[in-house]
Simulated assay, not measured.
Amino acid sequence: MNLENLVHLLAQTHQSLHQRASRAVDFALVVRNWLFGYYIVESEQQGEDRAQYGQRLLDGLSRQLRAAGIPGCSVSNLKNFRRFYEAYPQIRQTLSGELMSAAVSPLSIGQQLAGATGLELLAEQFRVSWSHYQVLMGLKDAEERRFYEIESVSNGWNVRELERQIASALYERLALSRDRDAVRRLSAEGQVLKTPCDAVKDPYVLEFLGLEERPAYSESELEAAIIDKLEHFLLELGKGFLFEARQKRFSFEEDHFYVDLVFYNRLLRCYVLLDLKLDKLTHQDLGQMQMYVNFFDRHVKTESENPTIGIVLCKRKKDALIELTLPKNANIFASQYQLYLPSKEELRQQLEDATFPLADNGLES
């Protein structure tokens, strides 16, 4: 082995073990902070006036822990640790009954959790970094918080991407196209692609394009902006999408046609065609997409692949027109796009109206 190869081997070894060590340190930090929160909550519950006792407790803890040389223990951080435990109290219930028995003192529980067996149990519960959990703690809804945690793990989101997905209301947008049971599955499993409907969002949020809201854009300008930020657009599309072509041409009977954007979804094993429309959706737009889908199904896809999906991305649409134009089993969808981050409050209201109409009518408790 020459010197150059040896240097390369040592560098690879260092990088691999350094990354593993960094992950181990971050995991230990997550466990420590959850345990700190657990101890603080247990101590506060023993105080007569929780508010006053809790503040005195945190002030005293912060002073003495910092004096002992333990980093990251300011009063604000201790409050975060408490919030962390309060956001994930179910972890205590999911651990073994013997380890978290009510008959065992908090001190004894903590000592057991800090041991090898306890750490193994906690390793199954904490799957993202402390920075991720600091973002997730800002979500009040436990199901929404669980969804984003699962998606962070399965998609390898860094903190910045997690923040962007939360700001774009991914959970609400996916939930809007699902029934009540499917919404519950979102929080338990994350986004799972089994049918064409699972791959479609409404609306698509394209704020990352950096385009201002104005009526003068052409479809080619919007398309060019998407291609320029293709990596971001693929993240917005969701799981399993691969880019294949722009302005894909196909011909028959001496006429030429162009599909704006062609993707392939490796999870659904099918082509996904996107057509961009700057204004209101028309029945002609849907008919055109039907022709594109038919061509790909008959002349492009193989027998082992699933039917092609068509998505018309438009500024405005009317659901009644879509229902009247398309057959029920069509693999064609129309979704709106917007160039700004949505209002989560508006989406949540739409979700409640669409998913829980019976409760609003007093027919279901």
Rank of each mutant, 00 (worst) to 15 (best):
L274S: 04
V262P: 05
K248P: 01
K280H: 12
L326Y: 07
D255E: 15
F333Y: 12
S251E: 14
K318Q: 10
I322A: 03
N306M: 10
F252E: 14
F250I: 04
M289G: 05
S251T: 10
N265V: 02
N306E: 12
L267Q: 13
L278V: 08
Q284E: 14
R249F: 03
G287N: 14
K328V: 12
T308F: 06
E254Q: 15
H283K: 15
C270T: 10
F295A: 07
F252H: 12
Y258P: 11
F243E: 07
L273Q: 02
L281C: 05
T282A: 07
L276G: 08
R269Y: 08
R266M: 09
H299M: 13
L313S: 06
Q284W: 09
N294A: 15
R298S: 15
I311R: 00
G287Q: 09
Y271S: 02
D275M: 03
Y292P: 04
H256F: 11
Q284V: 14
H299W: 10
M291P: 01
K239S: 13
N306G: 04
H299C: 12
E305F: 00
N329I: 08
H256G: 11
N294H: 12
L321Y: 00
P307L: 02
L278Q: 11
Q247E: 15
G310E: 02
F333D: 01
Q247I: 05
C314S: 08
R266K: 13
D260P: 08
E323P: 02
K328Q: 11
K317A: 01
L273P: 00
V293C: 09
L267R: 14
T325E: 13
V262A: 05
Q290L: 13
L321K: 00
T325S: 13
A320D: 04
T308Y: 05
Q247G: 11
V293H: 00
M289H: 04
I322K: 01
F295K: 02
R246M: 11
K315T: 08
H256M: 09
D255C: 13
Q247A: 13
D297S: 06
A245D: 13
R316P: 02
Y292C: 06
K239N: 12
I332K: 04
F257G: 05
Q247P: 07
S251L: 06
P307S: 02
Y258W: 14
T302E: 10
F263S: 07
N306H: 14
A320P: 03
E254Y: 10
N331H: 15
L326P: 09
L273F: 03
H283C: 13
C270S: 12
T308C: 11
K318M: 10
K277Y: 03
H283A: 14
P327F: 03
G310S: 06
D255G: 12
L324E: 12
D285F: 03
F241W: 10
F263G: 05
V259M: 07
